[in-house]
Structure formats: structure tokens, C-alpha cells
Design a protein around this nucleic acid. Structure first.
Lengths: 345, 345
DNA sequence: CTGAAAGCGCTTACAG
DNA sequence: CTGAAAGCGCTTACAG
């Protein structure tokens, strides 16, 4: 790095641009006196203190000479649905604040899309710990953090290719509960729209769906299974395909709430009423789920608690202590609202 | 603060717990050699380097001895609607990253509710700048940051009681455009649901609404004006009151999209179709607005650009440069979707 | 309250 | 590649 002199347009150079001795000279006092003022020590005359303080401020000096890295937990997202990301951030923040840490936020979407090394950015800052809430963490990324002694905790990781501490929720059980709910209502032709099944969470949900059918002795109809990504558009388009079949399903289990909203749109376009003509179940329980018409039956993930657990785990590891466990899978809850009813046929 | 010795349960003491000279002794080398390794200088044998690196790592030392405060822009929220907060954060982050800054996130809801001084938390961290995206900043808060030389930029501030640099959007024009759109469709009985009119933004929207009626020569009917807060529930409840009137409005202008969603619910409950029986206009253009049935006509606020502008302003001030202006009001856009149509009567 | 002197921890420049 | 010596910037302990 090239050493730059103070840039002329700066009124306030960064702290340290001028040695403390120069400040002392400018103030007409000795270096020890400036040092005392800077560190809030007693034993400096009020006038002297004010003169020195003004100079320190003008030159960008700040109280509390922090010598260590920032006490900060970094959370990394990759274009996660905003309301979910926010809940996770709140959970992280609550725990971090209790440990005198602040929370840093990064959305690495563009970096990752461009194939750039997102980890470097975070390493420069040297946070106490890093929590990733997106899937694309490689073993190499993990090693970079390991080498710097910064613990990395993954929220809902795609793969378990390398042994990162991780926090997620019980996707399999959630999908099982959702599907059982439909079976108990009497549905037998149940469609499913999944997220990318390479993701552990999407795969676990699909498996839970299959398991419920299996337990109930309902044969699996592969033609009622649609795979897509976690978007409104895929819910709408794949939902429309299911509903356009000669023998359409009477209910649809969705990979997440966004897809469920898409299915609502597809049902409207097909002239079907929910839940009279079609039952719909989502996954996540985002805030809007309760505001839909009809309010959406869905599987709640405890996002704030996931964030809080990830933060606790990360800070425990940063402390060099052994955590109770390195992998947490928090419970999901079926929230029954008005989008599910017995089939009319 | 009491000086603590290293806690026995810590495997990795914080950097600086041990002087570099001790590491040198443990490694059987001289302090200069350790210094070279620590700073990545050349001229150290490979074996020596590895031995020293291992020791440094074990004792929590980290490369890049950062002596300054973290290069970080802090964004402070107060329970802001998550999808909006996220868009703002993304805008801030883009600009911050371009200036080698990271973004810190704080939701001060609990602190503010408890009457605790939220500013102190941020001052400890000594960020380059602070951006507040909530209303409750007092002149005293402003002075605290001023005293520490940390610029404070407010997003969409409630009041202009003290002269903080601020970034918002043109609420008045937006509401004017929304109301004109309804007038052009032929509506004459137009209801309005507002946010707390103490807030500048809510007040500006109400004034824009009034102005549009005024220009069109449509007399103002005070009984069609409902005041509440920016929530789904208030939209639903106040919307229901409007619709229950003997002479209900044929259209409703809402304070934000959340209230508009509430009005959708109220219309459903009243057996009214949107837009055939009732036109609805929102404000904000949150992501879900396009997914509603019918998709919501609303006024878009450029949240990401607001965040980016706030970050640019904050970093310019932190640099000690004079910004082009200290107050920015970005343009809003009417997005016409399917929730508005000519009145049936 | 104030500062000359000593000290601390790290880095730099240079000799081997 | 390595380290004794000098140096730098700040702080501490103490004398006035």
C-alpha cells in the first residue's frame, strides 16, 4: 500500500495522521498532557483540556483508543427474502448486544454472482465471528476463516460437505406435519412444489412430504411433484401447471410461503377458490402469510431464535469454549389458518 | 474498567493478551522476527514462520494490526417494516463497500421503548458515520454524535427540530399523483387513511391528497379521513369504518402499503370487489404489492437509492467535505396496477 | 496542574 | 535468514 499524505480536501484527517507529539506542540503542552486528555485521565486543567480536546477533534482523534478488532458479529446474506433476513438479524442482535457486540450486515449477492471472494471483505474487518445465512459456502471459505481464528456458523446450509457448525430448523418434521394435516382433512391427491432439492432444506421438506404419504399408505404420484426455486413466480407457474392437469390435486404443499402466494395467484387465474376448491400450505410463516386472503396455513420457522442460536454458538466458539453441540435443528410449528379445508370431492 | 487476567476457560485469549516479546521467547526467536511474521514481511525462514504463526494463532493474534476504528457505517432502525429496511440496507451497503466500509445494523426498538440511550452503544464502536432510519432522534442525540465528530444522517425524519442532514422522498408529490390518478378515473368520493400526522412524511402525504382534491375542485369531506398508524390492522379497521358509512367512498388512498393490505381485508369482509366496487392506492411499493389480488396500485419510494444517498452524504460529511446539499428529497413514482378502476356508480 | 524522564511494546534499519 | 541496536509513539510514575 502506498503511503498517502493527508489529502488536501480533508478537514479531518483520520486518527493517527498526526503524531500526538504534534498535537502537543500545537496546543503548547507536553505529550503526556495530550495523552491524559485523550484517555480521559484526571489531572488536567479545564482550559488546557478544552484546548487539547478541540485540537484532537479537529485532527480526527477519538476517545477510547480501541486497540483490538471491533467487537462485532458479521452476518452474511445472499439475497435472502427480506422479512426473514430481518428476523434473523434481530435474533443475532439481541444475543450479540448481551455480549457487547454489534452486528455487521453484508449482502454478498453481487460478489457471489461475480465469482468474487466474499470472505476477504469480512476478514479485513476481523470480526469476532461470522454467521452466513446463505448456501454457497465452500470448504475453502471455511478454511480461510479457520486460519484466521474466526468462527463461522452457517444458517440453514445447503450442503454438509465440510463440518461447519450450523443452525437450521426441522424441515423434515415441518413438511411431515403439513402433509399430515392435509391427509387428515381427507386429501389424497396432494401436489407438491419444492425448492431446489440440492439444498438440504428443500430436500428435507420433500422427504417429509413423501414420508407422510408413505405412512398414510397414499401412493406417490410423481406427476404431482414440481421442482423450482423459492420464488412467487415459480409458485405461480408450477402451480398453474398442476392445476391445468386433467386430474388436478385438491391440495398443494409449497416449498415456502412465496411459492404459496404464487399458487394463490394460479388458483385465481384458474377460477378456483381457496380453500373450497384447493387447499394450500406454505413454509416459513413470513409476516404476510396471516394477511393473505384467505390467511395461509403454513409451517413456522423460528427465524429470530435461529439467529439468536447462531449468535450464541458463534460467540461460544469465539471464546474458545466447547459448545453444547455444533449443530442445532430448531423445531418448526404447523400454523393452521384458513387456506386448508376438506376436499369438496 | 477493572483489568482482568486471562480467564481460565479461554483457549484463545484476545489479541494483545500476551506481549509480542513473550511469543518470541516461546518460539525461541527474537521480537523483530515475530514482528515480521505478524506483518507478513519477507525475510523469515519458512520453518520459523510456521512455528511463529502457529503460536500467534494460538494466542489470538491476527494479521493486519488495525489500529484505527472500524471503517463502518452504522444504520439504526426502529422496527421498520422489514422489506423496506432491507432495501435501505442494500443501498447503504453498495455505497459503503465502494468506500471500503462495512455496514453495521442496529434495531433500537427495545432500547428506545425502555427509554435507554441508544446513542451510547453506537459511540462505543466509533463508526465512520451513523444513519438513522427511524423517527425518534432528538437534538440531544444529534449533539452527542456531533461532539464525537461522527456525522449523523436521518432517513425520513419525523421532525426538523434540529438541523440534521436528511434523506427522504417526495411524499407530497407522491400522494398528489396517487389522488390525481383516482380523480382522473372519475372518483369523487375518495377516502384517505393516514399515518401519524405528527410525522412529516405522513403529513406531507395527507397534504398532497388535499392539494389534489383542491386543484380538481372537489370539496373535502372530513368524514372520509381516518388517522391511524402504519399497520395492516389499522388499515383493516379504519377501512372497515369507511366502508360501513351510509355513503362510502368509491376509492381509498392509504398511508402505506400495509394499510392498503388492511383495506383489501376490509373490502373482502364487506363483500366488495377491488377494483370494481372499490379502488385502493397504497404508498411505498413493497415487494408484495405486486403479488396481491389484485396487484396494488401504489406510489413507489426508491428505498435502495435513499439508502445509497444517505451513505454518500454520510461519508462525504465524514471526510470533512461539504456535500452538494444537506437535504435530499428523492422522487416518488406512481405505479398503476389493477387495484384502481373507474367507479361503478 | 504540568512536564522531564523512564518505560513499554512494537518496528525499522542494518550488520553478520 | 536472523537478531542486537536504535527508534517511534504513546503512557506511566513521579517530582515540582
Amino acid at each position: 500500500m502506498i503511503e498517502e499524505g493527508p489529502r488536501p480536501h480533508l478537514r479531518k484527517p483520520r486518527r493517527g495522521d498526526l503524531p500526538l507529539a504534534t498535537i502537543a506542540e500545537l496546543a503548547g503542552v507536553s505529550p503526556p498532557t495530550v495523552s491524559k486528555v485523550l484517555n480521559g485521565r484526571r489531572g488536567v486543567g479545564e482550559q488546557t483540556r478544552q484546548r487539547v480536546e478541540a485540537l484532537l477533534r479537529d485532527h480526527g482523534y477519538r476517545r477510547r483508543q480501541t486497540t483490538g478488532a471491533a467487537l462485532c458479529v458479521e452476518v452474511v446474506f445472499h439475497r435472502m427474502l427480506s422479512s426473514i433476513a430481518m428476523q434473523i438479524l434481530r435474533g443475532v442482535q439481541e444475543v450479540a448486544a448481551a455480549h457487547d457486540h454489534t452486528v455487521g450486515f453484508t449482502d454478498v449477492h453481487r460478489l457471489v454472482s461475480a465469482g468474487l471472494p466474499w470472505a476477504e471483505q469480512l476478514l479485513v474487518r476481523q470480526p469476532t465471528a461470522v454467521i452466513t445465512a446463505f448456501a454457497l459456502v465452500t470448504a475453502e471459505d471455511g478454511e480461510r476463516f479457520e486460519a484466521d481464528g474466526i468462527p463461522l456458523v452457517a444458517i440453514d446450509p445447503t450442503g454438509d460437505l465440510f463440518p461447519t457448525p450450523a443452525v437450521g430448523s426441522n424441515n423434515w418434521s415441518g413438511a411431515l406435519a403439513a402433509t399430515r394435516h392435509l391427509l387428515e382433512l381427507g386429501h389424497r391427491r396432494i401436489g407438491v412444489i419444492t425448492g431446489p432439492v440440492r439444498d438440504l432444506s428443500a430436500r428435507a421438506r420433500l422427504d417429509g412430504f413423501h414420508a407422510a404419504l408413505d405412512y398414510a399408505g397414499v401412493p406417490l404420484d410423481q406427476s404431482l411433484e414440481q421442482r423450482g426455486v423459492f420464488t412467487f413466480e415459480d409458485g405461480r407457474d408450477l402451480g398453474a401447471q398442476l392445476l391445468a392437469r386433467p386430474d388436478p390435486p385438491t391440495a398443494v404443499v409449497c416449498g415456502d410461503d412465496l411459492q404459496a402466494m404464487g399458487v394463490y395467484a394460479a388458483a385465481r387465474d384458474a377460477g378456483l377458490r381457496i380453500p373450497e376448491d384447493l387447499s394450500v400450505v406454505g413454509f416459513d410463516d413470513v409476516e404476510q402469510a396471516a394477511w393473505l386472503a384467505p390467511p395461509l396455513t403454513t409451517v413456522r420457522q423460528p427465524f429470530a431464535e435461529i439467529g439468536a442460536t447462531a449468535a450464541r454458538l458463534a460467540l461460544t466458539l469465539a471464546d474458545g469454549r466447547a459448545p453444547a453441540q455444533e449443530r442445532y435443528e430448531l423445531g418448526t410449528t404447523l400454523v393452521v389458518r384458513a387456506s386448508t379445508a376438506p376436499p369438496s370431492r
